[in-house]
């Protein structure tokens, strides 16, 4: 079995040293002979190393290291092409084969996948931004100034995070538009549409909570305007219908819970930070896992399916 053993099937121990290996004790005091024997041995070892290296370079896929990483053989067979996708943790959400018309751009617009990719870049840039940011009223704004002027590539990092967030919102909305136009929410994908709507809401919330973090006028007033609406929540807000009757005041209503106070201040900043960097990403990731898993379980991507004709509608069973 050449591919499970060493390079050419030769056991490692019977290599070159066999000729020079016994130079140690038998011939005794002859110093010159000893040196020659060691040199010869070294030369043979070198030749073998070169040989092994050549083999490795020629066919790296036959090494044990390669095989241990990739787990399966990768040759030009349909089976190993399929295994290449199925046995890879990052790719295994894909099926081995898909509808030949689905790979064209015009059906899916690629919006779902690109949204996920933008989300990944946002997590990446966001994590780097967290290294330079303190969610505290005293230093938050200065951290942004520092990031923009002193941190290497800090400005680029912040810009990418900002524009990536906008891009993600646009892409999510277009993804929903496409799914609607293709009727992809219909049986059996109804529930995945519901998960998708929740992901849309979470995307908007992610973007909104991030708005406050620079602690500038733009974010401050946007969040003030936004959370002032919570004041008007029916039953739960102090200015909302029936709120006063239920004993809601600015100090115990739903807005107070969102801001951690009655005004947008230090507590609101910390809450926005935690929602933005920890809580919502975790929740959204969980929903994304479900979303992608359901795409597979509900029969993969919805189309382009063969068109159905009006004359082929089957009657529903009436209860």
């Amino acid at each position: 079995m050449p591919e499970t053993n060493g390079h050419d099937g030769k056991p490692a121990s019977t290599g070159a040293p066999a000729g020079a290996g016994n130079g140690n004790g038998t011939t005794g005091g002859n110093g010159g002979g000893k040196v020659a024997a060691v040199l010869a041995g070294a030369k043979a070892t070198q030749a073998r190393a070169v040989e092994e290296l050549k083999e490795t370079i020629k066919a790296p896929e036959k090494t044990d290291v390669w095989k241990s990483v990739l787990r399966v053989k990768h040759d030009e067979t349909p089976r190993s092409r399929a295994l290449g996708v199925l046995s890879n943790v990052f790719l295994h959400l894909h099926p081995a084969k898909i509808n030949r018309d689905a790979v064209a751009y015009n059906y899916t617009w690629g919006m779902g996948g690109m949204t996920f990719y933008v989300y990944i870049t946002l997590v990446f840039t966001g994590t780097l931004l967290m290294f330079y940011y303190h969610p505290s009223k005293i230093v938050a704004f200065r951290d942004i100034l520092y990031l923009e002027s002193d941190v290497p590539f800090g400005k680029l990092l912040r810009n990418m995070h900002r524009w990536g967030a906008h891009l993600m919102v646009i892409m999510v909305e277009l993804h929903m538009f496409r799914v609607f136009l293709t009727g992809s929410y219909k049986k059996p994908r109804e529930f995945n549409w519901v998960v998708g709507v929740l992901l849309l809401v979470l995307t908007l919330l992610l973007s909104f909570t991030g708005y406050l973090l620079p602690d500038d006028q733009l974010g401050f007033w946007a969040v003030t305007v936004g959370t002032n609406m919570a004041r008007a929540t029916p039953l739960l807000g102090n200015a909302g219908p029936f709120g006063g009757l239920l004993g809601m005041t600015p100090y115990n209503d739903v807005r107070f819970g969102l801001l951690g106070g009655s005004i947008v201040d230090a507590n609101a900043l910390l809450r926005a930070y935690i929602w933005h960097c920890v809580a919502i990403p975790i929740i959204a990731s969980a929903f994304m896992v479900v979303h992608f898993w359901r795409v597979r379980k509900d029969g993969g991507i919805s189309g382009p399916a063969p068109v159905m004709l009006e004359s082929e509608i089957k009657d529903v069973k009436k209860i």
């Binding site: 524009w163 990536g164 733009l218």
Partner: peptide, 30 residues
């Protein structure tokens, strides 16, 4: 995303100031 981020800077206004109301004071675009 790279080109967009290199050519256009994310907005940063003055530090937040509860006593100075922005006019118009707009929510995020979405």
């Amino acid at each position: 995303l790279m080109v967009w981020s290199i050519t256009l800077n994310a907005p940063l206004e003055e530090p937040s100031n509860p006593t100075l109301t922005m006019n118009p004071s707009k929510a995020p675009w979405y």
